[in-house]
Amino acid sequence: MKKYINIILVITQISCSSYDFNVDTVTADQLFKNIRKNNSSEYILINVWSTWCLPCVEEFPYIVNLENQYDSKDLDVVFLSTDWDENSLEVKQFLKEQNVVGQHYRKKEGDDENFINAISQSWSGVLPFTGIYDKNLNLKAYWEGKRDENFFKFKIDSLLIKKG
C-alpha cells in the first residue's frame, strides 16, 4: 500500500509541475542522431548515470554546474540515464530537483552490450561514465567512476585550450 501511495505522490508532484527539460528514451544510435541534429557546441559532455547509483548522484551537481560555467558554444551537457522503465518518474523528479534544463535522455531497455560499445569501446559498463565528444561525435576524453568538479573542469579546459 505504502508503495502505491508513494507512486501517487510522485505522479501528483510531477503532474503539478512543469519542466525546463525533456527526457527522451533512446537507443545509442538515436542518441547520437539527435545530438548531431541539434548540437551547436564545440564539445558535448555525456554523463551516463542512474538514480540508484550513489556515486552518480554524488557527482551530479558538479556536472549541472558546468553548464553555468561554460559558454554554450563551447560545451553542451547531456545526461543519459540507464534507469529501467519503472524508474522513469524518479528520473524526472531527480532532474527537476537538480534544476536541470534542456534535452536529456534515458536509455531504452535491453541491448546493453551494443549500447556500451556505441558510447565507448573502452567503457567497461560501470557507472557513472563520462565522455566528452567533439562536434563530429568523436570521443576525445572519457573516464569511469565518480570524479570531482576540478577533474571535470581540467578535462574540459584541456580540450578547449588545445582547440585554441
Binding site: C53, D112, E113, S124, G125, L127, P128
Partner: peptide, 8 residues
C-alpha cells in the same frame, strides 16, 4: 568476453 552495465 562480454560487457554489461553494473554498479561500481
Amino acid at each position: 568476453k562480454t560487457k554489461a552495465l553494473g554498479c561500481s
